[in-house]
Design a protein around this nucleic acid. Structure first.
Length: 564
RNA sequence: GCGCCCGUAGCUCAGCUGGAUAGAGCGUCGGACUUCGAAUCCGCAGGCCGCAGGUUCGAAUCCUGCCGGGCGCACCA
């Protein structure tokens, strides 16, 4: 299932072993003391002249060994035994860097690897099947999804795909905030519109939801239940209005997400925690564990025991629960389902909430870092160079659906992933529609479509995509081809790093780079050329590029079109 | 006032958990379509990495203090 380690070590792994081997040999000979086993790190140098991979091992050893770093580098290099003959040459540079230049053969094995593994190439088994719960979007069912939710959905979905790609067992969950004041307000708003639609004067609630969608829901209720509630006081039909509004909104949210290509494994209702008694049970357990206490007629969570600024109220003086109460129950529920890691994707305006939820996690006896909160910053929509004004109170805001209709699903998803999630995003609607280099999604998709087109052309000329056995990779000798091969070889480590850092945006940057190399290559060289053997080698290379682009786009949830 | 995040090219942003000469796109200017898709490519220019200290062989990256911006600081959700 997972490629990589079984048949072929990555270049990094291979070199790491060679280095460890050299170190132990130096130690045996007494050339190095190595009181402590140093961490062997390898990185890809920025400058080409510095080799394919480089280590700072000698620099970090300088102090403990009390020797000049260059001297240590010489010792290490002298002790290297390159059994697999992957090293073309080794250089000691600068203060003591050891630079490795790898053999052509070793690079080109990458192509065979991709050919053999297909979309499995680059996938790892870091997670080893460990279960991760990823919670995202989690919008109140009181209005349609807006652009900020869209970003959360895109980031969450891509991260879920990414974690799954590195071997985690990921469950995607949407927490429905269907308890408390907001739902009541929704019901009130619908109630007012309902009365108005039937010709009754009805005051609209102070902080009610003003959007036109409320009127639609009211009309829907008239269709469903008729004029049954005319002049019926709100209190007597609240339950019906709340339930109807909740269902209507959820249906719309679900449909929007579906259209956006985002699906959840579970929809978890906040109200169910209250109805089922889970909240009370959670509070009881906190009391038993000594992390809840009564004071001033309220019940407090002792979150300061885990580094929060102050303790937090869980049950108010009037006996009702705070929002934290259901969140305590919710996170207890998550932990109880056996997830080792919880990931929550929140709007950045909730960041102040992190310490107390981490306190909750710890109060239930789990390590702080079993909860990972990813903050997603706000999105500013730009049109004609100006920010699009949005006022939620007036019900006047651009919805995710609007953006999808305007720029398309792929462009929206991709652009949401072109920034680190915690950095502010200006989403330029004009650019997102543009079919040019400026629009990153087209740039990458175009690379894929262009490759597809080449294969169609090859087919019409009667040239089949060659099997690995029939290509001579020595013919891939141009600089552009080398660059592409090295980029493809870097794909697995990029995936690994992106997954470990919970940063799916790294994939978009990688794709921009790879697509750029491809476009550049395409312009300088003909893939289908007169030389048959060279054509075969190049087609083989192009096939692997196509595989990687498609696989990476797949993780992002963006289509890889054959034609555009 | 306290806490979190952010200050990198004119603009929008990367910078891989401390590495070598700080990168990309856009924008400006100039160039490339009889040949596999020009939704593309090539070139030029552009920088006290907010400021000042500190940690060390080495700092855009880590620490401290300022300055500037955003967001939080409820017995709201």
């Amino acid at each position: 299932m997972f490629g990589g380690d079984a048949e072929l070590l990555s270049m990094k792994q291979t070199l790491t072993e060679i280095l460890l081997d050299a170190l132990s040999r130096a130690k045996e000979k007494g050339e190095l003391k190595l009181a402590q086993q140093p961490a062997v790190t390898l990185e890809t140098p920025k400058t080409k002249g510095h080799g394919d991979l480089a280590t700072t091992l000698a620099l970090t050893l300088a102090k403990p060994e009390a020797q000049a770093p260059r001297r240590i580098a010489e010792i290490i290099v002298a002790n290297i035994q390159d059994r697999g003959s992957v090293i073309e040459k080794t250089e000691i540079a600068g203060p003591g860097f050891i630079n490795f230049f790898l053999t052509q053969d070793r690079w080109k094995q990458t192509l065979f690897e991709i050919d053999a593994e297909g979309f499995q190439y680059g996938l790892l088994n870091l997670g080893k099947g460990e279960r991760v719960l990823l919670e995202y979007v989690s919008a109140n069912p009181t209005g349609p999804l807006h652009v900020g939710h869209g970003r959360g959905a895109a980031v969450g979905d891509a991260l879920a795909n990414l974690l799954a790609a590195v071997g985690y067992d990921v469950v995607r969950e949407f927490y429905i905030n269907d308890a408390g004041r907001q739902i009541k307000l929704l019901a009130r708003s619908i109630h007012a519109r309902y009365q108005q639609a039937l010709g009754n004067e009805a005051p609209f609630p102070e902080d009610g939801y003003h959007g036109a969608y409320i009127e639609e829901i009211a009309r829907g209720l008239i269709r469903a239940d008729g004029e049954h509630y005319v002049r019926v006081p709100f209190e007597q039909c609240e339950a019906r209005f709340a339930a109807f509004g909740r269902e209507a909104m959820l249906a719309e949210i679900r449909a929007d997400l579906e259209a956006f290509g985002v699906r959840f494994d579970h929809w978890f209702s906040e109200a169910s925690l209250l109805d089922g008694g889970a909240v009370q049970q959670s509070i009881d357990e906190l009391k038993q564990r000594g992390f809840a206490y009564e004071h001033d007629g309220a019940l407090w969570l002792k979150s300061t025991a885990f580094g929060d600024d102050k303790d937090r109220v869980v049950v108010k003086q009037d006996g009702t629960y705070t929002y934290l109460a259901t969140d305590i129950a919710y996170h207890r529920n998550k932990l109880g389902r056996g997830f080792a890691t919880l990931v929550n994707i929140w709007g950045a305006d909730h960041h102040g909430y992190i310490p107390r939820v981490q306190a909750v996690i710890q109060a239930f006896g789990h390590p702080k870092d079993s909860l990972h909160v990813l903050l997603v910053q706000l999105v500013t929509l730009m049109r004609h160079g100006q920010p699009v004004p949005m006022s939620k109170r007036a019900g006047d805001f651009v919805t995710l659906r609007d953006v999808m209709d305007d720029v398309g699903r792929d462009a929206a998803r991709y652009i949401f992933l072109t920034r680190r999630s915690d950095s502010h995003l200006d989403f330029d609607l004009d650019v997102a529609k543009e079919q040019s280099r400026e629009n990153p999604v087209y740039y990458v998709q175009y690379a894929h479509a262009r490759l597809s087109s080449i294969f169609r052309e090859a087919e019409t000329r009667g040239i089949a995509v060659p099997a690995s056995a029939e290509v001579d990779l020595a013919l891939l000798d141009t600089e552009e081809e080398q660059n592409i091969i090295k980029s493809l070889a870097r794909y697995p480590e990029m995936i690994e790093e992106a997954a470990l850092a919970y940063e799916p945006h790294r994939i978009t940057f990688y794709l921009q780079d790879l697509a750029g190399l491809l476009h550049n290559y395409y312009f300088k060289h003909r893939i289908i050329a007169d030389d048959r053997a060279r054509t075969m080698a190049r087609l083989f290379l192009m096939k692997q590029v196509k595989t990687v682009i498609r696989g990476a786009l797949g993780i992002l949830g963006v289509n890889a079109p054959e034609k555009m």
